[in-house]
Every structure is written in C-alpha cells, then in structure tokens.
C-alpha cells in the first residue's frame, strides 16, 4: 500500500546514443528524467519497470536554442528553467507563464518539460501549450530524428507518439513574439492538477487547447477554427467543449467540465486580448 516501489535496476546514460542503446537492450525499461510523474506511479506500484535509465545527466538535452523561427527546448530542461528563461518569456510567453503554474516549486525544480509532455497526462498543463502554439516534437530513435506535430503527438491516456525505443529529445516552439496569450487553470487547491484548463495563443496562427477534457490532451478544434475566422469571444467560448468527452470524477462531472471549458476559454481569450 504505497510508498515502496518494486525492485528495479538503475542505469545511467551519458548521451542520447547510450540511452537509445540501453532502451533497446532492456525489456520493459523506463526513462527517468525528473521522475515527478514516473516515481509516484512506481511507489503505488501502478508501474513496475524492470530498469530505470536515468537520462537526467545528458547535457545536450538541457539547452534552450534560438534557431530563428523557433525556440528549440531540450527535453530535459526543468520547468523552473523554462519559467525563468528570458528568451522563452520573450518569444513563447505562454510557455513561460504556464511553466510557472506547474505543481509547486519543488515539482518545478525537478520536473522536466519533456517528461511532462511524453507522459501524456490529459490533466497536465504543458501539453496544452504545445497544442495551442503548434509546437513540433523532436523524437529520436535508432534511425535518427523525426518530427511530430503536437496535434499528432498525444494519442490516448498516458500514450504519445513516442515509440518504446525512442526518446523525446526536444520541443520546437514557433515564436509567438509579442502575441497575446491566456491560460486559465481551474483548481480547488492551488498546487493541484487542473480540473479543467484552457490555453489560448493569439496571433497569426491562433490556437486554443484544453486540459483534462478527455483521455488525452487536445486542441479545441471548433473553437480554434472559429477564432481563426474572427468569431467573437462569446461565440468561440461556446464552442470550447465541442467534440470533447470529458472525464468524470469527484471534482467534476462531464456537464460541469464542459461548462468550465467554456467559461475558462472566454477568460483566457480576454486575457489574450480578444474582445
């Protein structure tokens, strides 16, 4: 009953190549980055990997690079670093803003952006940023790098497009310099996962994405299209929950979640500068 994980082997990888090699050679191995999604599941024995491959020491995955059109953020960059990065605040301000709202300071000092995205938790904050901004995931496997659009990345509950022998190595965020943004996170306690969250990215290619409104992180497609076509705030907000199949739990039934999605979308749109 909790707290003590089952036995596992522990290996450290010094490079992406070494991590890929270890992944290929171990059955049922898991990558360990910040550990803030994986370790709690292991302590509850909901997950019992045979081997943990610790990639947290790979320096090349901890860099934030300005490539011109995009900001490339290494998958092992900690939330706290993203939150405090001047270049992120300047070019993808929604990301900097939301990174500061993940969990609590302890979580943000350990958790990584890649770990959060690749976990595929529909209740996590950062997938909605990737979806709203139209980010691209850089996935590395034995055959080299491949790029996956955020919209194709989140497959189902705790399931992403990253294969068992692949590693999410970086996320490329298109620059949204100077564009408005909004993020609304509805919680009962300040440090909790969102009951419902909504991310809005304004600008030339606007996007709206939802937190905890289905089995996987998802874009609010109808609302995003309406926004792009110039619909008003109320009309866009009314479409927020279109096509969703929200979960039901002690905090919210599906009706309440749909309602919250609409209310929060309106608030996020207003915060992003829409009227």
């Amino acid at each position: 009953m909790g707290m003590i994980p089952a036995r596992f082997d522990y290996k450290q990888a010094g490079s992406v190549a070494e991590a890929l090699q270890l992944l290929a050679s171990c059955d049922d191995a898991k990558l360990l980055a910040g550990g803030h999604s994986l370790v709690p599941l292991m302590k509850l024995r909901l997950v019992s990997p045979s081997t943990l491959i610790d990639i947290s020491g790979i320096a090349e995955l901890q860099e934030i690079t300005d490539t011109g059109p995009v900001l490339r953020i290494g998958a092992l960059t900690r939330h706290r670093v993203v939150e405090r990065s001047k270049v992120v605040a300047q070019h993808v301000p929604l990301l900097a803003h939301v990174a500061a709202l993940v969990g609590d300071p302890q979580v943000r000092n350990r958790g990584t952006i890649g770990g959060s995205l690749v976990h595929g938790d529909p209740a996590a904050d950062l997938p909605s940023v990737a979806l709203a901004t139209g980010a691209t995931m850089v996935v590395t496997g034995a055959g080299g790098e491949r790029r996956v659009a955020a919209g194709d990345f989140f497959v189902d509950f705790l399931e992403t497009a990253v294969g068992p022998d692949e590693i999410l190595t970086a996320i490329e965020f298109p620059k949204r310099t100077g564009a408005g943004f909004g993020y609304e996170k509805f919680v009962r306690r300040s440090m909790d996962y969102a009951i419902v969250g909504v991310a809005v990215q304004a600008g030339d290619q606007p996007g709206i994405a939802l937190v905890n409104m289905g089995s996987a992180p998802r874009r609010a497609d109808a609302a995003s299209r309406a926004l792009a076509s110039g619909a008003g705030v109320d009309a866009v907000a009314a479409l927020a929950a279109d096509g969703t199949n929200p979960p039901e739990d002690l905090n919210a039934n599906a009706d309440y979640r749909r309602h919250l999605a609409s209310v929060l979308t309106k608030r996020a749109l207003l915060a992003a500068g829409y009227r």
């Binding site: 009962r188 306690r189 300040s190 440090m191 909790d192 996962y193 002690l250």
Partner: peptide, 16 residues
Amino acid sequence: PRTATLIDYLVPAASD
C-alpha cells in the same frame, strides 16, 4: 474508499 490518496482527499495548503 474514493478519497484514499492526497490527490483525491483535499487537504488544503497554506496557499489555499
């Protein structure tokens, strides 16, 4: 029990 973890059993923190 439906609230047997501190994710579901909401003990507020100082910030709340």
